[in-house]
Amino acid sequence: MAEITLEDIIKPENLVYKKTDLLTDKELSYCPGCGHGTAHRITMEVLEELGLEERTIGVAPVGCSVLAYEFMNIDMTQAAHGRAPAVATGIKRCWPDRIVFTYQGDGDLAAIGTAETIHACNRGEKIVIIFINNGIYGMTGGQMAPTTLPGMKSSTSPFGRDVETMGNPLKMTELVAQLPGTYFVSRQAVHSPAAVRRAKKAIKKAFENQRDNKPGLSFVEIVSNCNSGWKMTPIDANKWMEENMFPFFPLGDIKVDGQLVK
């Protein structure tokens, strides 16, 4: 049998995976190894698989992912800091047939936008919120965020977060799961192939809930790394995340079909 060369394998008919066309060809503005890129890609893959790209409107936040509208090749708008759920509420109420989602980081959703998030969840708006939690304010230089772990060093807590004076980390996902307005609440990660597949499944479920007009909001948290903010290499940051973030922010579904599962 003749030797198989790379030219024999690299042919259009043998293609098994390529970046979805719903992401633009622009270079992502994120640091090397940042989970935002993966989260962008699986969100767009889900919309493509469900065939919803024509009637989906995304709301970009303020933070590292402020330029999400440059990368996601769908209709997007951009909200003031923390106000993405409020803008998404307005869009969804004006156009109930559209699929509306917000894509927010922890500084946007859990700090300045806490009120908007909690009230949108409590009102049971039929939108999807994708929440990227990396435990730090990445864009502004690694300051302490509400989600920073106890003892974790950041540029504004150089000796580690002291819960006596700086308070406790906020578990937004558990918090919104308690509200009657949420229908599906899950926490996932994107650091390994298995985690990405599970996260994609959760995001797909969230968009299916909205497509099927299920009563309530779908909320998916993605625990992500911030290797530049944590001052680690991407692979070390992923390991650190597994060892430190996951015990505090356990992965898995928290609320499915309006019922708490854990």
Partner: peptide
């Protein structure tokens, strides 16, 4: 080591920048 590749797409799935395209040929 191109001979070892099995075309499982794991690398492409975790790539944050989506720069990897995967091809697979069944023999």
């Amino acid at each position: 080591k191109p001979d070892e590749c099995i075309g499982c797409s794991n690398c492409a799935i975790v790539c944050p920048d989506g720069v990897i395209t995967v091809y697979k040929l069944k023999l």
